[in-house]
Amino acid sequence: MADRILPGAARADHLGDPTVIVDDVHVVYRVNGVRPPRPAGTPRLGRLAARRAAPVVREVHAVKGVSFVARQGEAIGLVGTNGSGKSTLLRAIAGLLPPHRGRVYTEGQPSLLGVNAALMNDLTGDRNVTLGCLAMGMTPAEERAAHDPIIEFAGINERDDAAARPMRTYSSGMAARLRFSIAAARTHDVLLIDEALSTGDRRFQRRSRDRIQELREGAGTVFLVSHSASTIAETCERTIWLDAGRVRADGPTEEVLPEYERNA
C-alpha cells in the first residue's frame, strides 16, 4: 500500500499544506430493526416453528475504499447520484461515523453543515444562535458580538420578527439559512457543507457563496455536496465523482463535471 499515490498528494503551487487525508476509507452502516424482505410465500408461523430468528440488523456498505488528499484553500465538490455515499463520506471526514476500515486524518476539527441538522426545533431562532455559538466554543462575549450579524446574514428577520419564533415554524429554506449562518460565523479549518446552498433562495445562494470564498481565504478547506451542477461549478475548482461508494473521477471541475453530467 505504501507505494500507492493518493490523488491530490502532489503539491500544487497555489495550494497550501494538506488539511484532510482520506486513506482507503470504508464505511459500513448498521440499520436497526429493518428486516430483509421475506421471500414470498414463506409463512411467518412456519419460520417461528423452525426457530429461525429473522435478523434485525442490516449492514449497508456505503463507502468502499475512498482515498484522496485535500489541501488548504481548496474547495472540493462531491457529486454522484442519490445513495452514492456523498453524505456518508462527509460524515466520516467530520469524525461522526467511524470508518470500518482505513483512516481519515484532519487538521483541527472539521465542521459538518447539513440540511437535516436542525438544532432545537422548540426554541426560537435567537436561542438557537446562542446555543450554536456556545456549543462551537465561543465565550458569552464572543457570542454577543456574533449574534446580530448571524441573524442579519441569515436574513430571517427581513419580513417579520422570525428570530423570536420557535424554529419549528420556519420554512425549510429559512432554517437552512440560519444553520449555515451559525456554522459560518466561525472560521473552520475544514468546513463540510451538505446541500445547504441549494435550499436558500437566489439571493442567499449568492451571499453564502461569497462567505465560502471568505472562509477559503481564511486558509480553510471546503467540501460541498450538491445536486446542483451550477453551484459546484461556481464554487469548486476540484470535483470528486462518487459512484456506488467508489471514486469514479477526481480532478478539475471543468473536466469531471461535464463527464458526470453526460453519464448521469
Binding site: T19, G95, P98, V104
Partner: peptide, 12 residues
C-alpha cells in the same frame, strides 16, 4: 503525510 503536516485522526 499526515504526520508531516501534523494532522490527527478525525473523531478520535
Amino acid at each position: 503525510l499526515a504526520a508531516r503536516y501534523g494532522l490527527a485522526v478525525s473523531g478520535a
